[in-house]
Design a protein around this nucleic acid. Sequence first.
DNA 1: TTAGGGTTAG
Length: 666
Amino acid sequence: MAVVVFQSLSIQCCLQTQQQHKTEIHQQRRPLNLQISSSSKSGELSTTHKVFDEIPHSVDTFAWNTLIQTHLGNGAHDHVISIYRTMLLRGVHPDKHTLPRVLTASRLSGSFFCGKQIHGHTLKLGFGSDQYVVTALMEMYGRHDGAAAARRLFDQSSRKNSVSWTLMAGLYIIEDKPNLAIETFHQMLKLGAENVDAVALSTVLSACGRLKSLQEGKKVHEIARKRELEFDVLVSNSLLKMYLDCGSIKDARLVFDRMHSKDVISWTAILSGYVKNGGFNEGLKLFRLMNSEGIKPDSFSVSSVLPACARISARKHGREIHAYTLRNGVDSNIAVQNAQIDMYMKSGCSESASKIFVRMREKDTISWTIMILGYSLHGQGRLGVELFQKMMNMRVRIDDTVYVAVLCACNTARMVEEGKSYFKFIRAPKIEHYSLMVSLLGRAGHFDEARSFIDEHQIEWHKEVQRALLAGCRIHRNTKMAKRVIERLTELEPLNAENYLLLSNMYAANAKWDVVKNLRELIRDMDLRPKKAYTWIEIRNKVHVFGVGDVSHPRSERIYYELQSLMKKMKEGEGYIPDRDFGFHDVDEERECIPIGHSEMLAISFGLISTQVGTTLRITKNLRVCHNCHSSAKMISKIVGREIILKDPDRFHHFKDGICSCEDFW
DNA sequence: TTAGGGTTAG
């Protein structure tokens, strides 16, 4: 931070000095200007500075301004201040071009004190009402003291233009007051409609997005259309983002498809929009299309598409994109590296993720969070807790999401006391933190404590909390409490079919068929659509999908034969007895079906007959795996001597040598 | 010679 004291310098003295050297300036200005301009354009700062050192005292302000501009453009803000000081010391008079630049430099270097001194200079020199000076001052005070401070300067200024109006609107957005930003834009329209330009439209569109107001956004879209600015790339990209922020991917796509020219930002915005809204395959498709149209992806586009690979466990695509980042030099970007770690973790390759994490030159809070969550996902909660301890020791910034991650890790590792102590550190816990604490206590079987915790924090009427409690009931087969929880869930989410199915399955387990019949009728009458269970397995670049009792696969006969033979081995060699209790299961159809017809069993069997001995099988299920399949998968891993990695919505199960990484707590 | 703006990761 530059702390420069100018008060000792006399502006009056500078004025006199300049008068004295007026003749010399005229004689020497031209050759010096040329020298500075050519060096500045080449961006060679050291050369520029050498030239600057050679400038005689009599040189005019233009050369100094050019030098200042070069350093400002290169982000050398402190240096700009030093040059300004030298300029004053040499008696050169700052002008209306110098002052906004040094004000900007002092704002960007965080030297508000210095900025205030320069404000004094602008008044003494009579540039207080220059438009560029006013906007620089507005931005400085606005960012430091808030929008109200900028507003005072703005209201006092006699000549307002599109830049000052837009700046004012932008400051309101920073303060999360999008309504005021939109109001400012409309005031500008009313008072000086000819001023509206692409940047003004872009700013107000961002405010509409923040407000999630499709109505306001469409009004601005109409204004852009009328002023023929709709297809300006900045405006189009802002419209795209506004529609995405307002949740209308359809309108965003319409803007994208109609754009005359698309840049890397347009492509990144739309593909990121799809990925964030669950359109993982469409996101990947757009990424490929972008490449084929000759738009080179940058760190932003790569970080936007990698979560799609993570979510659909598309290791192959993820690896290809990873290779692309290495070839194109974007792999050292921290956001890209974080997205890569997340992708590898979520597609089952925790080792590849760890390698990147270890090699990272710089790690931020997000990098650590991804690793802690990743370890929890793979049943290595203890490693996650250790990482959190390390992170604290290294004084890395801890935020709410890191606490979510470490509480997840404590859950996985069943480290109740550690979880309790970390929870105490959270200043303002959110419902996610409370739910994780309830889950931690419930999974450990501490139901009385979980109840007291819920009462103490008055969080009973949150579906997340009830679901967390249900997880504990499942593990400990606490049917009595589970019934109460599910009944509460049906009150909280009357349109969620899953809750009625859980209830129905619990009554079925107790042979209360009349209640089961009533619940099924209720589901039908309310026209609720329960989820169906599916499992995917990728064999030689082709994805095979299996439903419950599926016989549609061309190798179906062989798949069932393999399963029958495995079942025989499990019964004879491992003493396996299928569990008929589906009381805690989320789908109805699987209870009706014999366990070997469950989708994950079919996928495992197909994987075994389609790959070489010893190959690891990787499968993904859209719903939670049932107890029978979990036990079967453990035994199969031992019988066939293979690792089976099964991903369900909450975690990875690594079945190996007859045991699972989740230690049967899922 | 100068200002205000649009895309990323947990």
